[in-house]
Design a protein around this nucleic acid. Structure first.
Lengths: 140, 140
DNA sequence: TTATGTGCAAAACATTTGCAGGAGT
DNA sequence: ACTCCTGCAAATGTTTTGCACATAA
């Protein structure tokens, strides 16, 4: 893990990163908390938030500002796009080529200093369009 | 205003929509509340949230699930993309042609029933890259 | 040793909701 | 009249923060 000077390598940080790397599901801070708590039962939710935020600033991980009420985190930092299920909130990667050029277009036609872009597709995921009988029962 | 049957045309709804249409700044619910309160001082914040949500569901307005901590609302419902200032949070329209085709691509390569997509550019707006002397003083 | 990090609990925000009274149709 | 809607306030959900103690370097 490439850390800025002054940033200490703590057990909490190592485990948060390890758990995030294990998974491709773009977990929320709370989901990371639950994963990490299995190995470090006394960790605080604040620590998880502080460190996810810090790692995102450092560029070790990605903070996804997608729709829905919670931020999500991703250990895959290579640029890629996402698709979100409007029904269950799940976020998946979507393998559409990244259009780096449109940043230049954006810079030309706007007054902004353009840093990048993100595409978020929305849709209904397979589980939500094909509910099992039990799930159907839950919904009613 | 095209309303579904059963949905009543109240003063609150008219004024919320009128105020939102006056403006191109993609205000948050709280900003809409402040705008509307000048004309309807006793309106409740809950009413503003309820009606913005309702109008978004109906398709009269757009709810923008952009980065940052608050949702934003837009009276322009024609598809278009946005750029957000990472420094002050401001959201502007950006006039890049909408790529309707990529929804089909997304549908082919994912297991989702694709509904649409949104592109959000991020950058630093003109005011934030060219602070006035007073603003500089505030920051320090 | 000492600055940085952690756990805990409280605070700060953004948004939603229950309910009694108010208003559109 | 009969619903639906509103204002108000309380509740909820997410994220941030203050502080005393712990720990990496």
């Amino acid at each position: 893990m490439q850390l800025p000077p002054q940033m200490r390598l703590t057990t909490q940080r190592q485990i948060i990163l390890e758990e995030l790397e294990k998974v491709t599901s773009h977990p929320t801070a709370n989901e990371v908390y639950d994963m990490v708590r299995k190995r470090l039962p006394r960790i605080g939710l604040g620590t998880v938030y502080r460190n996810l935020e810090l790692m995102a600033e450092t560029g070790i991980i990605l903070k996804l500002e997608v729709g829905g009420t919670q931020k999500r985190f991703d250990a895959t930092i290579a640029p890629h796009y996402h698709i979100r299920c409007v029904s269950c909130g799940k976020v998946d990667d979507i393998d559409i080529p990244v259009m780096a050029e449109i940043d230049k277009t954006a810079a030309e036609i706007s007054q902004y200093q353009v840093l990048g872009h993100h595409i978020e597709f929305s849709g209904v995921c397979w589980s939500c369009s094909n509910p099992t009988e039990e799930e159907e029962t839950l919904v009613n």
